[in-house]
């Protein structure tokens, strides 16, 4: 198991926003977390990425696991798109950084924007930039919080293709939060459904989407 979660809890005062008893993530698989707004998806990803702290409980990554995280609100630094991607490269790869960066920019259709200021991009472009920046480095596990939420359909499909190629090449594990059931169906091996901070149901993608068992998931899928 690349990641094990035990009794993980996050609360603000009396309000519990995340409460997971136990869950194990298998290496190399792709997990989609679905659920309504405020169900705990982002909270879980932030805690796993260590940009937020849990109130109780633990989680443990397999030893020497390199974790990459793309937050819900992607950020473009005030420098060229090219430099935005290059800053993610470790110093030891500096000599190949530019070539690799240009490759990533081309794959994500960002090459025409390479000289543009990263802070002046549209929402969808910023997400592609953030994804490219993350994928320019080697990670064993990727935590993506609604990675294509602001992208148009065509850009999202391209981004998914690049992401899947990266996962295959690196044997990396993916945990991503999404509001798009179609995207979850296209990408994920396993779907995890959250409601009110609780992990309600999980299983193989087709099983969860076609044969939901919990009333909450059935209701969620009907409304989706």
């Amino acid at each position: 198991m690349i990641l094990t979660i035990e009794n993980l809890k996050k609360q603000y005062g009396d309000k519990v926003v995340l409460d997971i008893e136990k869950f194990e993530f298998e290496k190399g698989l792709k997990y989609a977390i679905i659920g309504a707004n405020g169900s705990g998806k982002s909270t879980l990803l932030k805690i796993l990425a260590k940009t937020d702290k849990q109130s109780n409980g633990n989680f443990e990554f397999e030893k020497d696991t390199a974790v990459g995280f793309m937050p819900q609100h992607s950020f473009g630094f005030s420098m060229s798109v090219l430099n935005n991607i290059m800053l993610a490269f470790p110093l030891k790869y500096k000599n190949i950084a530019k070539v690799k960066t240009l490759e990533i920019l081309e794959k994500l259709m960002l090459l025409p924007l390479k000289k543009k200021n990263g802070a002046h991009l549209s929402g969808g472009e910023t997400e592609r930039l953030a994804l490219g920046r993350l994928l320019s480095n080697q990670h064993d596990i990727l935590l993506l919080d609604e990675p294509t939420a602001s992208m148009d359909v065509q850009s999202a499909i391209v981004a998914e293709k690049v992401l899947l190629e990266y996962l295959k090449q690196n044997g990396a594990t993916l945990i991503f939060a999404t509001h798009s059931l179609k995207q979850a169906e296209r990408i994920a091996d396993i779907i995890i459904f959250f409601a009110n901070g609780n992990l309600i149901e999980y299983g193989k993608t087709k099983t969860v989407l076609n044969f939901p068992t919990s009333s909450q998931l059935i209701e969620f899928l009907q409304k989706a």
Partner: peptide, 16 residues
């Protein structure tokens, strides 16, 4: 907030 989240997610050190 978004700078720290992004930098942490990329594994960028505190100084950088």
């Amino acid at each position: 907030s978004p700078i720290l989240e992004t930098a942490k997610g990329l594994g960028i050190g505190k100084l950088k």
